[in-house]
Simulated scan of single mutants.
Amino acid sequence: MGLHIARCHCGTMNGQDEKPGNGTDSGIYHERQQKELCAMHALNNLFQVQGAFTKKDLDELCNKLSPDAFFNPHRSILGLGNYDVNVIMAALQKKGYDTIWFDKRKSIDCLQFENIMGFILNIPTEYKWGFVRLPIHRKHWISIKCINNQYVNLDSKLDCPEIIGDSAALKEFLHNQLMDNDKELLLVVAQEVGETGAWRKECCVFPPVATADAICDSNAEMTCVSNGSMKQKSQETFPGSN
């Protein structure tokens, strides 16, 4: 079965439709959820291109990250997806982007939104059998991007993308999301932006961040590296997602 792809009219976060012609109509690319491929959907939705990454691409990255592992720690044991943060970071690096973990102790106001290509949220998700909630705990990747001067929630579990609004609305949205300790935010920036720190305002001081240079296997401990980035144990911070 092929990907479920929607190019549909977007609604706002409060459920009211925006009028066509104001930058929120049917030009948005949106892949919908299949199996445990939310990481692939989040990446393709972020780049607004079908096939920017395929399941084969992400599986190859898993093998490069842990070439000798009998059971690859970066994806589902069943091979259905469920890719971890290391795979997302490696994929973005292939496109010339760094991935920066946002320290939730800092204010969203510290971010220079105009220098950030997009956002990826890692959020809890629930499994249900009919109306019964199952005791299965997984997380889910979603992407957020500015399209036609408005930020859009491109969650693959939505029927259609949802308009968040301008930068003020995005600040409020991200602030509300990050009040949940189980949610994490990744910033996607061009490599030169990551190197210069132009994704943050000069008045804000951040601790060392995890960028694409910090990709490591799941057995590595958190250690600082020479460029000031941080290697992090992905299975502790970002469990497998779907």
Rank of each mutant, 00 (worst) to 15 (best):
W199R: 02
D155Y: 10
L178H: 14
C203F: 12
K145D: 01
F113W: 02
W129M: 09
H175A: 00
G194Q: 00
A198N: 11
L121S: 07
K139A: 03
E202T: 02
I116P: 01
Q177E: 09
L121E: 06
F119I: 00
I163R: 12
L186E: 14
T196D: 14
L134E: 07
E172Y: 13
L154D: 04
E172P: 04
V193L: 01
S156Y: 14
W141C: 01
N176S: 09
I164W: 11
I123C: 12
Q177T: 03
V205K: 03
R133G: 03
A169S: 13
D180P: 15
H140K: 10
E114W: 04
Q191F: 01
R133D: 06
C146L: 08
D180F: 02
C146E: 06
K139Q: 15
N149D: 15
A190V: 08
P135H: 11
A168V: 14
G194M: 03
V189E: 04
I144L: 13
E202K: 08
Q150R: 15
I123M: 08
I164G: 04
Q177K: 02
D159M: 09
N149L: 13
V205H: 01
L187E: 06
T125P: 11
N122S: 06
V152H: 00
N122F: 00
K145S: 12
W199V: 00
H140R: 13
V132N: 05
P135W: 08
C160H: 10
C110V: 05
L185A: 09
V205E: 01
R138E: 15
C160V: 10
C204S: 06
E172R: 05
E184T: 00
N148S: 11
E192K: 06
S167F: 05
Y127G: 12
E172N: 08
H140S: 07
A190K: 09
Q150A: 10
K171E: 11
N115K: 11
I144R: 00
C110L: 02
V193Q: 07
K139N: 15
Q150L: 14
W199I: 02
V152P: 03
H140W: 02
N176P: 05
P135Y: 09
E202N: 03
I144Y: 07
